[in-house]
Design a protein around this nucleic acid. Structure first.
Lengths: 234, 234
DNA sequence: CACTAATGAGCGGTAAAGAA
DNA sequence: TTCTTTACCGCTCATTAGTG
């Protein structure tokens, strides 16, 4: 006889409900899984929608296009809520900064602060007229390279085994589940296909390191170098 | 299920606010981030200005540019009042030197004087045109070395036992918890891995001096290289 | 001194950009 | 789409330099 103790992802207490609710890889009390907008319980409901790790009832999920975000006293269209530096649209829960009613992602907010610091270190406002913080914001910054969490990788890899070329719909679902943008997901699958193809070649031709000694009687310095994978260049 | 406990940089208590306020690499209660001049809350505000680790509202930041120090007949911005050699901002009451309206801390003022003396001993101004004292000021800024508190070490060591290669997220969490920068945490883990590896090698393979000849008859150079993972090139 | 934080070179892996 | 290239990130190793 085995006891499996399940704890709720929201309240962290043991689940003694008649039914065990499993959503998004986590277990929940029926009444703990709520729409993040209207707070209605989703546990007793037929559908549950996920976007960027937040849960929604159907109504609030579909009306999401009209969503706005509140930041300070101001309200932004969801689409307008993007970093003015790198133009990237920010996700729910993501950190942001506000400078004169302009939205900044965490990264470029920090960069702005650094620049601001540097300016003040170099003698303050003397050279700059008027709008100091704005001048410290890089104008068209590159989008930073995203790094995936292990959970996001898990989701994508699982899908990749099932289907290496997911259609647009599946792509969107993955984006919703992981909280990543559709484009990022798409690029990952492109790169993953390329990676697999590349590695297949290596599977056919065994790498040098795995050769058996009988096949390589001449143990030269070069082999040593290959084995260690590191050459020290003086 | 992971719990992320955030503590406020000002009152050191847990943050249960709806929004987590992150400024300058630290986390704050909304009401704990105040302007250091007028004490108004900045957490509910759109902008927050930083200078020398103090926080200001917009009004007080811009008027803070009026902060000055008087040295001789000249007036300096507070932020400008730093040693041009080591870049360190000088505190109230600290000794300083002035060379062509440039501020020097006591140490680098003395060094400059010494260099000046040496130049004049070696034949004077002949080779140097014009700005003699300035050329005697060392250009290089001193690199600041952080020293960790025992609590910060505690946190990092505890994590190291669990995971020697923490991912980006964990790194950030450690940075948040300790108040250190992400980079500093990363470097500590790199150094700690190297340290462990160094010590392990000594534990397993006794240092050359203590090898007994009977136990190690065939100690070739190649084996040594592979075993230690280190090639000394000269 | 020993110890260790920081720096820099070099490299593997891979997300992103661009061409075809 | 695929293929190529670029750029970035994290790592290791060797070295430098700050601290006690």
């Amino acid at each position: 006889m085995s006891f499996r103790l399940f704890t709720c992802a929201r309240c962290a207490r043991e689940i003694l409900d008649r039914h065990l609710l499993k959503v998004h890889g986590l277990t929940w009390h029926l009444k703990c899984l709520k729409c993040s907008v209207c707070a209605m319980s989703l546990g007793h409901h037929n559908s549950c929608f996920i976007r960027n790790k937040a849960f929604f009832c159907k109504k609030d999920y579909t009306s999401a296009n009209d969503w706005v975000r509140r930041a300070g006293k101001d309200i932004y269209h969801l689409a307008c809520f993007a970093c003015i530096s790198c133009k990237r649209q920010l996700s729910t829960g993501e950190e942001f900064g506000l400078v004169e009613n302009q939205v900044l992602c965490r990264l470029h907010y920090d960069i702005m602060l650094l620049n601001l610091q540097r300016v003040s270190d170099n003698g303050g406002v003397a050279h700059l007229e008027g709008n100091l913080p704005m001048d410290c914001i890089p104008k068209t910054a590159k989008r930073p390279r995203t790094s995936f969490t292990s959970e996001q990788l898990q989701v994508m890899q699982t899908q990749f085994i099932r289907d290496k070329n997911p259609d647009a719909q599946t792509l969107q679902r993955l984006a919703d589940v992981t909280g990543l943008s559709r484009r990022v997901i798409q690029v990952w699958f492109q790169n993953c296909r390329a990676r697999q193809k590349r590695n297949q070649v290596h599977d056919i031709i065994p790498p040098l390191g795995s050769c058996k000694s009988s096949e390589m009687p001449l143990l030269s310095d070069n082999l040593l170098f290959l084995a260690s994978g590191r050459l020290q260049t003086h």
